[in-house]
Simulated assay, not measured.
Amino acid sequence: MPEIRRKTRLGAAVAGASALTLTLGACTLETTAPADARSDARENGKSLAADQNPRRTTGAQSAVVGTEPVDCEKAKCIAMTFDGGPGKDTPKLLDTLKKEKVPVTFFLLGKKHIVKYPQVVKRLSDEGHEVANHTWTHKRLDTLTRDEIRRELLLTQNALEKLTGKKPGLMRPPQGRINDDVTAVSKELGLAQILWSATAKDFSTNDSALIRKRILKQSSRDGIILLHDIYDGTVPAVPGIITELKKRGYTFVTVSQLLAPAKANPGEIYRP
């Protein structure tokens, strides 16, 4: 991850929500915390009405998401996210999430994943989880031209729209690598950029107990957890993570729910 430093709040008229700053060489990019996005939305007169809240749903989705709005100013919210899928273990993960009534955000990968598991994509969408974009081939976007970035994101956008009936509004850049070109193309395509605050580095271990321990140690209010449902140790770790965080008083939400009543702005970078 790039260097991060806290920026002083300057007021909505000057700088919008208070932000963190990502420094990538000579390039500096602001990031917005979920709490600041919510605060600015309320200052601008937005409320958490039931018809605005992403938690409001019906039918098959209610088995996971429920129908009551969640106010993350009052509730101790945390968002669990999964990158790189779907994979062979994603159906088992969905079974766990349905049992526990936990909504999550899936940042889905196109080639060899969305293409290979279209029915799983449809299932996770139908069960109320948030569908988001993790590019087509997982190339580092900050090494590509704007046309190449656009292709990586558009192929996945189009594939997900075909399967779920709607285009995602969120993306996560591979390795969290962002520059001005990535931001410009994301804004053009209507995609907000979502980073994270807790990671198990589950790409480097299949030890489920270690994955659980790392996530629990890093979890905090308004946090965004990064996991991968394509590695062998991750899905078995999820039940224990959910059980313990519920004991600690956390409410699980999707990324969009974490930001509500704010809506994720295309091109903007969000990170707790």
Rank of each mutant, 00 (worst) to 15 (best):
E43R: 13
S39F: 07
L10N: 02
E43T: 05
A12D: 12
A15T: 10
S39K: 09
S18G: 14
A35Q: 09
T31E: 10
S47G: 01
A49K: 11
A49R: 12
S47R: 11
G45Y: 02
A13C: 03
Q61K: 14
A60R: 10
A50C: 06
L22T: 06
P34E: 07
A12T: 12
D51H: 09
S62C: 06
A41Y: 04
R56K: 10
A41H: 05
A49I: 02
A17K: 08
V64D: 05
V14K: 13
L24E: 14
R55S: 09
A19L: 06
N53L: 01
L24H: 10
S39G: 02
E30Q: 09
A35G: 08
A35T: 08
T21G: 05
K46G: 00
T58G: 09
T58R: 10
A12H: 06
G45H: 02
A13V: 09
T31D: 01
A17W: 02
L24M: 13
L24Y: 13
T21M: 11
A63T: 05
G25W: 11
A17V: 03
A63D: 03
V64W: 05
R42W: 00
T21W: 11
D36H: 11
A13N: 08
A37N: 06
S62R: 15
T57F: 01
S62T: 13
A15S: 15
E43C: 02
A33N: 01
S47D: 06
C27P: 00
L22Q: 09
A63S: 07
T58D: 12
D40G: 00
A50K: 14
T28Y: 00
A19F: 07
L10F: 04
E30S: 13
T28H: 13
C27N: 14
T31C: 15
P54S: 02
L48Y: 03
A26D: 15
A60Y: 09
A26E: 14
G45M: 03
A60H: 03
G45W: 02
T57L: 02
A50T: 12
G59L: 11
G16Q: 08
S62F: 03
S47V: 10
D51M: 03
A63P: 00
S62I: 11
Q52V: 06
Q61Y: 01
A19D: 11
Q61N: 02
D51R: 07
L29H: 09
A63L: 15
L48W: 01
S62M: 11
L22A: 09
A26Q: 12
P54W: 02
A37Q: 07
T23A: 14
A17F: 01
T32A: 05
R42G: 00
A50Q: 11
G11S: 06
V14N: 04
G11E: 04
P34D: 07
V14F: 13
A49T: 12
N53H: 15
A60D: 07
T32Y: 10
A19W: 10
A26M: 03
L22Y: 15
D36Q: 13
